[in-house]
Design a protein around this nucleic acid. Sequence first.
DNA 1: CCGTAAATGTCGTCG
DNA 2: CGACGACGTTTACGG
Lengths: 223, 223
Amino acid sequence: MRLVIARCSVDYIGRLTAHLPLATRLLLVKADGSVSVHADDRAYKPLNWMSPPCRLEEQLDDGSGTWTVTNKAGEQLIITIDEVLHDHAHELGVDPGLQKDGVEAELQRLLALHVETFGQGWTLVRREYPTAIGPVDLLCRDADGKVVAVEIKRRGEIDGVEQLTRYLELLNRDPLLAPVKGVFAAQEIKPQAKVLAQDRGIDCVTVDYAVLKGTDDPTQRLF
Amino acid sequence: MRLVIARCSVDYIGRLTAHLPLATRLLLVKADGSVSVHADDRAYKPLNWMSPPCRLEEQLDDGSGTWTVTNKAGEQLIITIDEVLHDHAHELGVDPGLQKDGVEAELQRLLALHVETFGQGWTLVRREYPTAIGPVDLLCRDADGKVVAVEIKRRGEIDGVEQLTRYLELLNRDPLLAPVKGVFAAQEIKPQAKVLAQDRGIDCVTVDYAVLKGTDDPTQRLF
DNA sequence: CCGTAAATGTCGTCG
DNA sequence: CGACGACGTTTACGG
C-alpha cells in the first residue's frame, strides 16, 4: 500500500467523464492495483478511483508529473501531480478477512420459528420453498388453511413487492396451492412499497427485530 | 487527514456485527470525523468504517491501545491496536469538488430538449411528470397527439422496464390520458430488458449520448 | 428532516 | 462471463 499526499488535478474518462480541479488530496495505491483519490471528507468514498484490474503508469519529472491509470475497458483516470507532499509505502500482507453476521438471514430464521407473528393459528409449510424463479422465503398456511407466501426483507421497498408478485403469479398457477395470498414482511416498509402492495392485494407486516429476538432468547423474556 | 498504519483487530457492532482478526492495516481518519479501516485489496472499499457524524475516543498506552468510534445511533467501531507502524497527519483543506458529466440527469435534460429523437412531430408535455408512485421522466405526445411515457436510464435493465410498466398501468387509469404508450430510452439496453419491454408493448430507444450532446452543443455541430 | 431514485454503485452467488 | 439480489449500500435531490 502506497500513500501519497499531493497537490493534483484529476480527470476520469470512462462510464462518465469527471474532473477535479487542483487541490491537495490523498492518493491511495493498493496492492490489488486500485488507485483512489480522497479528499478530507465524504466518509470513505473517494472523489475518484479506478478499480482493479488496472494498470498505473507514472510519468514524473522532479516530483510533478502525471499518473495514468487504465483498465481493460479503456477507462482512464489521469492524475496530474503538481507537487508531492508525502510519499510512503508499506507492506501489509494478505488480510485474514471479514467475518459478518447478517440481519436478513436471522430475521428469516426467527420468523420461521414464530409464524404466529403473522396471525394466530398460522403454520409453516416450508422455509425457502423452491419455485422455478427462486425460493419463496416462507410458505405458510393461515388459520383457515389457506396458503400464504411470505417475502422477508430487512428494508421493504418496491423491488421486494415486485419479487413477491412474481412468486404469487407462479404459485397461483398451481391448482394444488391456489389461491395463494401474499405477505410482505420487513423491519421497515417504505410508503411507496405499501401503496403498491395494497394495490396488489398483498398484506404488509412490520416486524420488530428486537421483540422477535427477545421471543427467541430465553434470557430476554419478561416472564 | 490522519494516516495510521497499525497492527490491529477490529469489531463493528451496529446494523450487523463484524470482526476482523489481528493484521496490519491502514486506519484513515478524515477531517469530517469518519474512520475507515483498509486492507491492501478490495479496491477503494474499507473493510470496516464509521461514517460521520461520529466521535473517536483514543485510549493509548505506549502505542498500543483502543480506538472507540461511536455514532448517534449507538453503532460502534472498536479498533484494538497492537502496534503503530506509521502515524502521519496532513492538512488538506476543503476540496473544490467533483464535476460530473454523462449521468442520467444530463441524459434526461438533453432528451427533454430533443424529444424529436423519439420521432418527428413529438412534443414534450412535462419533464418529471408526477404520479402517486413517483415521477415519470418525460411525458410526451407523439405526432398523432397520443400520450407517451418515457423512462430514461443510463443503462437499461429489467428494473427500468418494471418501473415504466407501473407508471403506464397508473396513467392508463386516467381517462384524460389513456391510452398511454411507453418508451424505454437508454444509452445501452440489456437483451433481457428488450425482451420484457417488447412483451409489454413498450418501445426501446437506444440513445447516443455523444450525438445528443453534439446536437446540444453548437461547437460540436458538423454543419 | 424524510422519502425517493441514481450510482463510475460494489460485491457476492449462481447458472 | 453475465444476470440477479443484497448492501452497515452511499449519495444527491426535492418536498
